[in-house]
Design a binder for these strands. Structure first.
Length: 499
RNA sequence: GCCCCCUUAGCUCAGUUGGUUAGAGCUGCAGGCUUUUAACCUGUGAGUCCUGGGUUCGAAUCCCAGAGGGGGCACCA
């Protein structure tokens, strides 16, 4: 501030150069506005209409048309074309963009003050709606006022902001400059509210369970660790909501869901961010067949609400989200795409040889997961449920009613990306204890992603949990699909970055 | 954690084999223009060529190290 004042010397001499000079010029305009009695940061602008409403109110007018309807609008200046004693100003709010026509003979002295406006400033304008002879709906300004002076230059008005790093670190600039980015987050917001609406309409009960947990669980992942000062104890950021939500089912909340952030202490990739938005829902008296039907209905219904159709574009091809989705067992999918029959190759070493594995520590289940991830998953472009997983990878899923060694679990894939995971939930407390003991053995072997033993959760199951179907749906990944985004970072406003 | 690629003006980008004072458009500034819309016209300003070393008479350019970003591997949803 004082630095800028110091730079304010003569007209031509003492020019500050480069970016600093741009900042100085904007502050000089700020000072001039104040000197002329204008408050560059007023408290409000009442009685405004949204620009989108104004545009909607004047569809179909002929070029050169004039109306008597006076509008009061406000927004950010995104473009300006001066014509001596007249100027065109593009004004944008959250609902749309409209042109303001400012003329010296109409505005009088107020016209001169336009000189101190910059791209990026917020102004409020009042005037009647007209259509220029080029057919452009415009507000012919009779008065205007500064609503906020912008002290930094906006990104390039034509090319937008392309630099990926700046777009993620300064998402506000990305949102100012790039309509595509604004649209992605609009779709994200609508997706979240339509998902919630679907659950509410189907009788689900929304809850909030702890993010800070004494013991983490519900997924196979490494947690973030933190510390509570007053209790002087270690706490974990949740990796899933699963275990608390099942306690809710034990407590009689038959249809329960939570939509919120999970945290996993893992690498960052096009499909992973260390904090991500997860929906989990649990439904008493349902199994994994019921949840599959629900997911189809939810995803295709949300797409229709948000996109207007139950189909998406992905890498240039159209994918239908309409039910029914493909249903293939894990065994058949691997056999089809990799020529390996995991039901025959039940020996760890035999399977290892068959897939050319060289990781000595990987167990049989891990090998199945590896061959599936590499050979099958990228091929699952159309919506597909992969059914019936090996027990050892699924410590919370119920044993399959017909297939020994398998559990009733599916994962759903779209565009080669996993978007959801579901089981017939394990509710036999003694079997759950056995699974925890298996996991404890994995921890002893050095697997830092195994599920820690949770005695308190077993107690809850001993209280009695009805047969239950549960689903986890990755909201970020769903939004990726709905927006044809290739990276999760495109659908997360402020993705994790290095310092 | 490993491998490959990228980093030039506020923004979008050129920059020849290593060779004069590193350029263009937009933005900015000064001026002109009362129906333009990437407005236009005239003039003009703007750089830690990511950082630090090195090679060379001479480095944006070649070499080494580092930072940040992107992509891949690994791990995972």
């Amino acid at each position: 501030m004082s630095e800028a004042d110091n730079q304010q010397t003569g007209d031509d001499e003492g020019q500050v150069e480069g970016f600093a000079g741009i900042l100085v010029e904007r502050r000089e305009k700020l000072d001039r506005l104040r000197a002329s009695g204008v408050n560059p940061f007023p408290h409000s602008f009442t009685g405004r209409e949204e620009i989108g409403e104004v545009i909607a109110a004047h569809g179909g007018l002929e070029p050169g048309a004039e109306t008597d309807s006076v509008h009061r609008i406000a927004g950010r200046i995104t473009g300006r074309r001066g014509h001596g004693k007249a100027a065109f100003i593009d004004l944008r709010d959250a609902t749309g963009q409209i042109q303001v026509h400012a003329k010296a003979d109409v505005l009088g002295d107020a016209y001169g003050l336009l000189e101190d406006l910059d791209l990026g400033d917020f102004i409020g304008v009042e005037g009647r709606a007209i259509v220029t002879r080029r057919g452009q709906l415009s507000i012919e300004a009779t008065s205007w006022q500064v609503l906020t002076k912008s002290l930094r230059p906006p990104p390039d008005k034509f090319h937008g902001l392309e630099d990926t790093e700046t777009r993620y670190r300064h998402r506000e600039l990305d949102l100012i400059a790039n309509e595509e980015s604004r649209e992605i987050f609009r779709i994200r917001a609508r997706t979240v509210s339509e998902v919630r609406r679907w659950l509410d309409d189907h009788g689900f009960f929304e809850v909030e369970t702890p993010v800070l947990q004494p013991l983490y669980g519900g997924a196979l992942a490494r947690p973030f660790v933190t510390h509570h000062n007053a209790l002087d104890r270690q706490l974990f950021l949740r990796i899933a909501t699963e275990l608390y939500l099942k306690r809710c089912v034990v407590g009689g909340i038959d249809k329960v869901y939570e939509l919120g952030k999970d945290f996993r202490n893992e690498g960052i990739s096009m499909k992973h961010n260390p904090e991500f938005t997860m929906l989990e829902w649990y439904e008493a008296y349902a199994d994994y067949n019921d949840t599959a039907a629900e997911l189809e209905e939810l995803v295709s219904g949300v797409a229709e609400k948000v996109l207007g159709k139950a189909e998406i574009e992905r890498d240039g091809r159209t994918i239908s989200l309409a039910a029914p989705w493909h249903r293939v067992t894990l065994r058949d999918a691997i056999f089809e795409h990799a020529g390996i029959d995991i039901d025959e190759l039940t020996d760890r070493d035999a399977l290892s040889d068959a897939i050319g594995n060289d990781d000595e520590t990987a167990g049989w289940g891990k090998l199945v997961d590896t061959v599936f991830s590499k050979r099958v998953e990228p091929q699952l472009i159309e919506p597909t449920f992969i059914l019936d997983y090996p027990e050892e990878l699924s410590p919370f899923a119920k044993n399959h009613r017909e297939k020994p060694g398998k559990v009733e679990r599916w994962e759903a894939f779209i565009g080669g990306v996993e978007i959801a995971n579901s089981f017939s939930e394990l509710n036999d407390p003694d079997e759950q204890r056995r699974r925890f003991e298996q996991q404890a053995a994995e921890i002893d072997r050095g697997d830092d992603e195994a599920q820690p033993f949770d005695e308190s959760f077993i107690e809850a199951l001993e209280q009695g949990m009805p047969p239950t179907g549960g689903v986890g749906l990755g909201i970020d990944r769903l939004v990726m699909m709905l927006t044809d985004s290739s990276s999760l970072r495109e659908v997360v406003l402020f993705p994790a970055m290095r310092d």
